[in-house]
Design a protein around this nucleic acid. Structure first.
Length: 345
DNA sequence: AATCATCTCAACCGCGCTAGA
DNA sequence: CTCTAGCGCGGTTGAGATGAT
């Protein structure tokens, strides 16, 4: 017995989504909440398969998605986490709440992989050169300089990450749900049971300017513009699968409130009162209600899985331990200074 | 200006997993 | 226990954008 196709191939539309389709989808989710994707095409009349609807929502229409260039901080996070977790993009994405796994995966494949390869090549070349010429060459001093530069940056980053984690932890130490070691989970590293866990606050940095405001597909704010009421009408979440989602999220919200919800609300109001800001700001999280964010962000955003227990502990250890962590860091990042030398210049 | 090559990223595909009947 | 529906994840594709010649 073969696996049935997720959708009937005949009469199912493929390819880029149109604004009209997006509006239909968002309206439906606004009404019924995300989830029960199977029924979405049926109930909306969209000629899309459920998967496509879910993907569109998760990767583009979902509030709270940051688009545009990755910051240095994010880049480093991704590199570190990739070294830690491998190509487990969903797990990596859970550490970058504003980014989707698809986005991170694309960024890794198109930018970071090349960058690292290049750096590795350069560093090995440099190393050979260095070995053949001795340690007092100009290249070695350059290396030392950039190494020091990198080291300082790294320390700053670690400090910032540490600070962020400490802030998060200090909100309510008891509220952090430590992953439980249920037998099924420990036995199954690929378990899809998502556990709300410590999600670091978004990395600092200026709001991203969307690089693709001209192309429809990548501008979720278009939908926000098209649906101005969206921000004022949090979706009902009572009669669909989102009920349980909402419950979970509420409890999560109570247990682990958004670190910046107050400031967020203020900026939100400012954003709402200023349509130009609203439309120019690619950071969609600024153009939605906090309720909407809290409702949806956790729902469709992959969270730290139980399976991430070792890496999470690892990360926590890494971030929290001081002197002893230094040794770990080298192993954790799996990137020598040479390899990453100049990577973020 | 035209053509070709390369890059980017939105979207698709197939598989694995879980829950429920 | 088996089967099925539904969902999430990671790998891959391909159309459009961009750069080079």
């Amino acid at each position: 017995m073969g696996r049935p196709p997720c959708c009937d191939k005949i009469g199912v539309k493929k390819g880029p989504w149109t604004p009209e389709e997006d509006i239909i989808l968002v309206s439906y989710i606004q009404e019924h909440g995300p989830g029960n994707w199977r029924s979405v095409p049926t109930n909306t009349g969209l000629l899309r398969c459920s998967k496509s609807c879910r993907l569109r929502w998760t990767n583009y229409l979902r509030p709270g998605i940051k688009r545009g260039n990755f910051t240095d901080q994010e880049e480093k996070m991704i590199i570190h986490l990739q070294a830690l977790l491998g190509n487990r993009w969903a797990a990596i994405a859970s550490y970058l709440p504003q980014r989707t796994d698809n986005d991170i995966k694309n960024y890794w494949n198109t930018h970071l992989k090349k960058k690292l390869n290049k750096m590795q090549t350069n560093s090995s070349d440099q190393e050979n050169h260095h070995r053949s010429r001795g340690s007092n060459s100009s290249s070695s001093s350059e290396t030392a300089m950039s190494k020091g530069k990198w080291e300082r940056r790294l320390q700053t980053d670690i400090h910032m990450a540490k600070q962020a984690l400490c802030d998060a932890l200090s909100l309510d130490n008891k509220s952090i749900i430590l992953p439980e070691l249920s037998p099924s989970v420990t036995a199954n590293p690929n378990s899809q049971i998502h556990q709300q866990s410590v999600i670091p606050p978004p990395p600092p940095g200026p709001p991203q300017i969307s690089h693709s405001t001209t192309t429809y597909a990548s501008s979720a704010e278009n939908i926000a513009r098209l649906l101005p009421n969206w921000i004022n009408k949090p979706p009902k979440s009572s009669h669909t699968s989102s009920e349980s989602i909402g419950t979970t999220q509420n409890s999560v919200k109570e247990q682990f409130p958004s670190p910046s919800s107050e400031g967020f609300e203020t900026s939100l109001q400012a954003g709402l009162n200023n349509n130009s800001n609203y439309s120019n700001n690619s950071d969609v999280s600024h153009s939605i209600s906090p309720e909407t964010t809290s409702l949806f962000q956790d729902e469709s955003k992959p969270n730290i899985e139980n399976a991430q227990l070792p890496p999470l502990c690892f990360l926590e250890k890494w971030l929290l331990e001081d002197a002893t962590a230094q040794e770990h860091e080298d192993n954790l990042m799996n990137l020598s200074f040479e390899e990453t030398d100049g990577l973020f210049d």
